[in-house]
Design a binder for these strands. Structure first.
Lengths: 221, 221
DNA sequence: CCTACCGATCGGTAGG
DNA sequence: CCTACCGATCGGTAGG
């Protein structure tokens, strides 16, 4: 009965820690995520948890990576799987996947990046802050590229500034998270879709088809 | 040399605690605001700090009130002092005061309400969460009223849904806080003003007059 | 307003 | 992966 387990067992434990850590961090933030709480929830000792990461900061960075993996799976890849053409069609699919990601409440505390950005944006620069800012920037750049393609193809109405369009799209998603989490406002996803539609020069939605664009079925995880 | 001071002294101490507490809470959040840290910063003992409030929760609620007072002074009253007529003119002044409030960095951690909303929106209901949600709602209601007046007066372009307009305005302010705090993006205030202008059916700004509407000089505090 | 405490919890280490 | 610790800090209390 040695406490030493196989490499595969260790990896499984690590995965369980990160999965639970991501749930907790979405609620309590990355500082509020404590090793003792994780250990209790997983019926482990604190040193058993910490052994996988060494320090709390390394654990926090691993949780950020876990959150990125979820976002990539549920937004980036799901949008890509729709096979929409570059430019406005792809941008619409990406926006729909983004709204859907929040609407489906994949994490108990809502959007991990919104929570953690607000937690770290005033901190001195550090690895965690940098990681969050960098991951945010990757998604913004992807949206900007599609917007630029849409502009070049004459698919957008009047606003020729891709940066401005992405800024405003982001704001509508932040408003969604805000209304959805603070007031449990069930109308918020529809409001965000309506704002995005207007911003991208689309006509108002038909009653029977509220989505911005059709998406493949979501992964059930 | 009794440690007991006058009532006026006690009130001054209380004010100092709340002022510092608001600064700290804007950075660290209302949970991250600790009594020990406050005591150190103010060269007091922990029990000296706690004596003014009894419990941490009471302290947190007092800090929320302090934040409301700042917002009322710098946004609500400053906008009212401009003397704009109800409807679109007043709505523009209120939006300009709102953007200016963030742009001027009145607190070291940016918008207190954004930070605290994101911190408490997933928590079980409690007095702090309720207070934050209620204060948020008061401002939203004020904006909605002016929007409804503007709609009734035919001052808005096409969108007849006041709730939707307020939702989108809020989103642009959230985007401002996001870009301003996380990326130190100096272009963010102009982007928000531009988005608001478009949303409210105004022409694009002239180069020399970027504000949404003229405001009186800010209070220096 | 202070000193002097309390039990609980924090991140982390030693040693196995 | 565990037990058994460490010093520091948390919110809060007793008593003056």
């Amino acid at each position: 009965m040695s406490p030493r387990r196989s490499v595969a067992d260790a990896r499984r434990t690590r995965t369980a820690i990160l999965r639970r850590g991501l749930d907790l961090a979405s609620i309590e933030g990355l500082e509020g995520l404590t090793i003792g709480r994780l250990a209790t929830d997983l019926s482990m000792s604190k040193s058993g948890v910490l052994g996988h990461f060494g320090t709390k900061e390394t654990l926090q960075l691993a949780v950020v990576d876990e959150a990125v993996a979820l976002f990539v799976r549920e937004v980036v890849r799901r949008a890509a799987a729709a096979g929409a053409e570059p430019g406005l069609p792809r941008l619409l699919v990406q926006c729909e996947a983004w709204v859907s990601y929040l609407e489906r409440d994949l994490l108990p505390g809502g959007c991990f990046f919104t929570a953690v950005t607000s937690e770290f944006d005033d901190r001195e620069s550090g690895p965690v802050r940098s990681a969050v800012a960098a991951k945010n920037a990757v998604w913004q750049r992807e949206l900007r590229q599609q917007t630029e393609l849409a502009i070049a193809a004459g698919q957008l109405p009047d606003d020729p500034d891709a940066e401005q369009v992405v800024f405003e799209l982001t704001g509508q998603v932040l408003a969604l998270n805000h209304a959805w989490r603070l007031y449990r406002d069930a109308a918020a996803p529809a409001r965000t879709r309506r704002a995005m539609r207007r911003l991208l020069g689309l006509p108002a939605a038909l009653d029977g088809q509220p989505e911005l664009a059709p998406l493949p079925e979501p992964d059930d995880h």
